[in-house]
Simulated scan of single mutants.
Amino acid sequence: MRRGFAFGAPAGPAGQCAGSLACIGFVVALAVAFWAGAVWLGQALIHFATFGF
C-alpha cells in the first residue's frame, strides 16, 4: 500500500474553486441565519420573562 497518497495527491481541477467558495458561502449563510434566530429567540424569552416590560 502506498503511503502519503492523501498528502501527495495533486489539487483538484481549477473549476473546483468556485464550488468550494459557494460551499463556504452557504455555510456562512447558515451560520448567520442560526445566530439571527438565536438572538431573536433570546430577545423573545427575555421579553416574556419580564412580562413585557
Score class of each variant (00 low, 15 high):
residue 3 R to M: 11
residue 3 R to F: 13
residue 37 G to N: 08
residue 44 A to M: 13
residue 32 V to I: 15
residue 52 G to K: 01
residue 7 F to G: 00
residue 23 C to D: 13
residue 15 G to M: 01
residue 6 A to H: 08
residue 3 R to D: 14
residue 24 I to S: 06
residue 10 P to M: 02
residue 40 W to T: 15
residue 29 A to N: 03
residue 45 L to P: 01
residue 40 W to A: 15
residue 24 I to Y: 02
residue 52 G to C: 02
residue 41 L to P: 00
residue 18 A to G: 07
residue 26 F to E: 03
residue 45 L to Y: 01
residue 45 L to M: 12
residue 18 A to Y: 05
residue 23 C to K: 12
residue 28 V to W: 13
residue 23 C to G: 11
residue 52 G to E: 01
residue 45 L to C: 12
residue 3 R to T: 14
residue 18 A to M: 06
residue 14 A to M: 12
residue 1 M to A: 15
residue 7 F to R: 11
residue 12 G to E: 10
residue 4 G to P: 05
residue 42 G to K: 03
residue 52 G to V: 05
residue 38 A to Q: 09
residue 26 F to N: 01
residue 4 G to N: 15
residue 16 Q to K: 03
residue 37 G to T: 02
residue 10 P to I: 00
residue 10 P to K: 06
residue 51 F to S: 01
residue 5 F to W: 12
residue 23 C to F: 13
residue 39 V to E: 14
residue 27 V to F: 05
residue 38 A to I: 00
residue 21 L to N: 09
residue 13 P to T: 04
residue 2 R to F: 06
residue 28 V to K: 06
residue 1 M to E: 15
residue 28 V to I: 15
residue 11 A to F: 13
residue 42 G to E: 03
residue 15 G to K: 00
residue 42 G to W: 04
residue 11 A to M: 11
residue 8 G to D: 12
residue 47 H to Y: 12
residue 39 V to A: 14
residue 45 L to D: 04
residue 24 I to K: 05
residue 23 C to Y: 14
residue 14 A to F: 13
residue 10 P to W: 02
residue 3 R to G: 07
residue 38 A to M: 04
residue 6 A to N: 08
residue 3 R to V: 13
residue 21 L to H: 07
residue 2 R to Q: 09
residue 9 A to R: 15
residue 51 F to W: 06
residue 45 L to N: 05
residue 45 L to E: 10
residue 31 A to D: 12
residue 47 H to N: 08
residue 16 Q to R: 09
residue 34 F to Y: 08
residue 13 P to Y: 02
residue 29 A to M: 07
residue 5 F to I: 10
residue 6 A to T: 04
residue 39 V to D: 13
residue 45 L to K: 05
residue 33 A to Y: 05
residue 48 F to M: 06
residue 1 M to Y: 15
residue 45 L to T: 00
residue 8 G to E: 06
residue 43 Q to P: 00
residue 47 H to V: 01
residue 44 A to E: 12
residue 44 A to H: 07
residue 38 A to P: 00
residue 48 F to V: 03
residue 17 C to D: 10
residue 5 F to G: 06
residue 18 A to L: 11
residue 15 G to N: 10
residue 44 A to G: 04
residue 8 G to A: 07
residue 3 R to H: 13
residue 11 A to G: 09
residue 33 A to K: 07
